[in-house]
Design a protein around this nucleic acid. Structure first.
Length: 855
DNA sequence: CGAGTGACAA
């Protein structure tokens, strides 16, 4: 190392070692340090070093030179002419190790007691992050110059806690050091970074007391501090009061608005700054582009892009990266890619933005390609990269790629990053591997709220409702307060359970945690109440909301639809249009399904047409499926089949599935076979549709064909989804499967069903034995009687007091016989029975059903 | 000496 050689040769320092100090004027009494803790407090404050070398004449001041700043009481030394040797040496230090090597040499040269050296040393220790060593140098110095304090304060502000910085500032004041403006700028920055408003305000006061209230630097710091504490209004007040405002100050207030979600105001301020003759620089652009993304205006984005090009900012990596981000957030991922490809010297942030851009635009495959390319080019990744890649794997549902990224974590030493671990939990959950997600979650050392949320959502989305609710309770036992995300995960799980008391419980909890005003949470509640059969409660909640999202309207419309209240659904849709809420694809899906459940065929067609004509929404597969369902249920099967033939896109399984379902209802074997064949071409192994086809044959007494379907299923090992029904009783959820005998009350239930059977037969019920074959009529009846739905109803009747409404939920569609039987049961027992099946609600009352036998 | 791009869970 050349520096060491230089030192060992004992160079000639030209005697300029302490020029700044030796010619300084005497220290006024008022500035003397209190050194009560030091036994030598009476020693002269500024001793002249004993190893003084002969002084050269002071160099002439040069007006153009970069001035070496010292307090005004001392002489300015142009740095290019003169530099303190210890300063030169220390400037060559690039690491803590080198610094430690230098110190003995400097002590040996007798420079340790020089102020410039001391200050430089403190500064370097701070720079390398060792405040402890900096303080060890600082503490014993007897005659501390102001700069030493300022340097030490800077160190505390940059490396340590805000408390340490502030208390050091107090000590500095106590020691009689006069604060300079950059003491405040550093402190304000820490207050801002910590969002510590209380301390920020104190510093602000101190700043005023010390006469910096009109200083641009200080006040920019104040503006920034308030903005970072989320008080943009206050920040603007300070900004507005400033007598003069430079570019940095404008940038500060603009990014303040942008970062607090006021993109529009930020953009307006850019216009105003230009009116005041300030040209936006690259930092203005980088600050404003996220605001453009926030507003989502491609037009404004393009004009800012144009400005940047004219101003020559294109070559700045950060500007280009911000452009990539802006374009992809405005939905123009192609343009983002063009800019990305043209960039030279991409940073990891650029790569990350491109990956996230593709993920946000629903192209996880392209995101993974970029990720692959990044690995090929050996760009060093960050946790953000990995999170983006995991998100893409999750959207692809590709566990293998997800596992690959997971393995990469250990090499990157990101295995301890909570955010990354949370992304892993989400990825595995979305890839249907909740088991792995749960393992990661259990092993996670410092679980955050987000970890819990990800885990709860994972369970909820994988149908493991009980675990979702379990974890929700567990997290509260660990004193972790749920937020809106938790609620939005757990409420749909309860909606799936369809149990009213639990619904009310979570609603209460939402109110107690003050989350009831959150649109997403409130929407989830509306949806949940509708799915629990309490559609009117849902509507009350809907009406009480101050703010409604499209999804809120969708939930309510769908709620009416599944309850067979087609008219109410359409009225609400019209109201939505009047309130100028733009319906989306999902809205139309809800509307069409509402029409379908209520037999409103003409209305359905009208809305289907309006979708593209009035709203420019291209019908997707599900919309075609809904139309086939609409025609099919209304027994217009031939029209439905024609409709499928005329579809502009290749019909998928769901469309033929709707057709097959309609054929089952209306007992049409010919079209049913056609639809089934198309389904089995597309997916030969679906259990549900095989059963549906078998049922069609059974209804038509085509037993040989029934047998053929059954054989095919057995050969291929296709499983029929077992039917289940659930009811809630005194905070316990009871699940019944067909023919179950394991329930503690099983004997009682079957006995009760027998007497009940006689009662409803007396009222006119005829068991639909047609759909069962090969066995005696008595056995047929027994088979029908063991359907999960009847078991659940019997159980509820046995265990609730007369007059109580019965709610039950089943996974498949209600079968014809159960539907008919339930009508009679509601009549003879004078009970209201609400059944939620796979598709809709059935309200049984006084011998009729709300679906009007139309399901 | 003050300003600045990406960011986990719906």
């Amino acid at each position: 190392m050349h520096v060491n050689i230089y030192m060992s040769e004992r160079p000639d320092f030209n005697g300029a070692s302490h020029l700044a100090i030796s010619i300084s004027p005497p220290i006024p009494e008022s500035k003397r340090r209190r050194m009560s803790s030091h036994p030598l407090s009476f020693t002269p404050l500024r001793r002249i070093p004993t190893n003084t070398l002969p002084l050269p004449p002071p160099p002439p001041p040069s007006p153009t030179s970069n001035l070496h700043r010292t307090p005004s009481s001392r002489t300015y030394i142009p740095s290019h002419v003169y530099k303190h040797p210890s300063a030169i040496l220390l400037e060559l230090c690039t690491s803590m190790k080198e610094l430690h090597q230098f110190i003995p040499l400097i002590i040996k040269n007798g420079l340790y007691s020089e102020h410039l050296f001391q200050t430089k040393l403190v500064s370097l220790f701070c720079k390398f992050g060792s405040l402890h060593e900096a303080a060890r140098v600082f503490q014993p110095i007897e005659d501390k110059i102001d700069e030493l304090y300022h340097t030490m304060l800077k160190g505390y502000a940059r490396n340590s806690s805000l408390d340490d910085a502030v208390s050091f500032f107090c000590r500095m004041r106590y020691d009689g050091v006069r604060p300079v403006v950059y003491n405040f700028t550093y402190l304000l920055k820490v207050c801002g970074d910590n969002a510590d408003l209380r301390k920020g305000k104190e510093i602000h006061c101190q700043l005023i007391v010390n006469g910096f209230a009109s200083n641009v630097f200080a006040m920019t710091g104040v503006v920034n501090m308030y903005a970072k504490c989320r008080l943009v209004e206050e920040a603007y007040k300070m900004f507005d009061r400033m007598p003069e405002r430079d570019l940095v100050c404008w940038n500060t207030i603009i990014s303040g608005y942008a970062q607090n979600g006021f993109g529009k105001t930020a953009l307006e301020l850019v216009l105003r700054m230009q009116e005041e003759g300030k040209r936006p620089d690259s930092i203005t652009i980088v600050s404003i582009l996220p605001a453009v993304a926030d507003v989502g205006s491609l037009r404004i984005g393009r004009s800012i892009h144009g400005y940047s090009m004219r101003a020559g900012f294109e070559s700045f990596v950060n500007v280009s990266t911000a452009l990539v981000d802006m374009y992809s957030k405005c939905g123009s991922v192609g343009t983002a890619r063009l800019i990305f490809d043209r960039m030279t010297g991409k940073t990891v942030v650029s790569w990350n933005s491109m990956i996230d851009g593709y993920v946000q635009n629903g192209d996880p495959g392209a995101a993974m390609e970029i990720f692959q390319k990044m690995m090929d080019e050996q760009v060093e990744m960050t946790n953000v990269t990995v999170m983006g890649a995991l998100h893409a794997c999750a959207d692809l549902g590709d566990v293998e790629q997800g596992r690959f990224v997971h393995k990469l974590l250990d090499q990157l030493e990101l295995g301890s990053d909570v955010s990354v671990m949370n992304s892993l939990i989400s990825m595995y959950s979305k890839c249907k591997r909740v088991d792995i997600a749960a393992e990661i979650f259990e092993n996670l050392q410092h679980k955050t709220l987000v970890s819990w949320n990800a885990m709860i959502l994972g369970y909820a989305q994988n149908g493991r409702i009980n675990e979702a609710i379990d974890y929700f309770c567990k997290m509260q036992l660990q004193n972790i307060k749920p937020d809106s995300f938790t609620m939005v995960s757990v409420i749909p799980a309860l909606a799936e359970l369809s149990v009213l008391p639990q619904a009310k419980w979570i609603h209460g909890l939402v109110i107690r945690t003050c989350l009831d005003k959150n649109v997403f949470v409130a929407t989830a509640l509306v949806d949940m109440y509708a799915k629990c059969g309490a559609v009117h409660t849902a509507r009350k909640l809907f009406d009480m909301m101050d703010e409604r999202h499209v999804t809120t309207w969708n939930a309510m419309i769908d709620g009416y639809g599944t309850h067979g209240l087609g008219k109410a659904a359409l009225e609400l849709f019209e109201k939505m249009k009047k309130e100028v809420i733009k319906p989306n694809e999902v809205t139309f899906l809800c509307v069409l399904s509402a029409c379908s459940h209520s037999g409103l065929v003409e209305e359905g067609f009208q809305y289907f047409g309006s979708m593209k004509k009035d709203y420019g929404l291209e019908p997707a597969m599900d919309h075609y499926g809904a139309m086939v369902d609409l025609l099919g249920r209304a027994n217009r099967l031939n029209e439905a089949w024609d409709f499928i033939q005329k579809m502009p896109i290749e019909p998928a399984i769901s469309v033929f599935g709707a057709m097959l379902g309609a054929c089952r209802i209306h007992k049409n074997v010919e079209l049913g076979e056609k639809a089934a064949n198309r389904i089995f071409d597309l997916d030969p192994d679906d259990g549900g549709y095989h059963v549906l086809l078998a049922n069609i044959y059974a209804t038509a007494s085509m037993w040989d064909k029934v047998a053929r379907v059954r054989t095919t299923m057995e050969k291929k090992g296709i499983q029929k989804t077992p039917g289940w029904s659930v009811v809630e009783l005194q905070n316990e959820v009871h699940t019944f499967y067909s023919g179950t005998t394991s329930h503690p009350q099983a004997k009682k239930i079957y006995a009760f069903l027998e007497t009940l059977g006689n009662r409803i037969k007396a009222a006119g019920y005829m068991p639909d034995t047609n759909s069962v074959h090969d066995v005696e009529d008595v056995v047929k009846e027994q088979l029908l009687n063991s359907h999960s739905e009847k078991l659940a109803i019997a159980f509820s009747l046995l265990n609730t007091s007369p007059g109580t409404t019965i709610h039950l939920r089943k996974n498949l569609r209600v079968c014809g016989d159960c539907h008919n039987a339930t009508k009679y049961i509601s009549l003879v027992t004078k009970r209201e029975i609400i059944v939620r099946d796979m598709r809709r609600f059935h309200h049984f009352k006084d011998g009729t059903c709300s679906c009007g036998d139309y399901w």
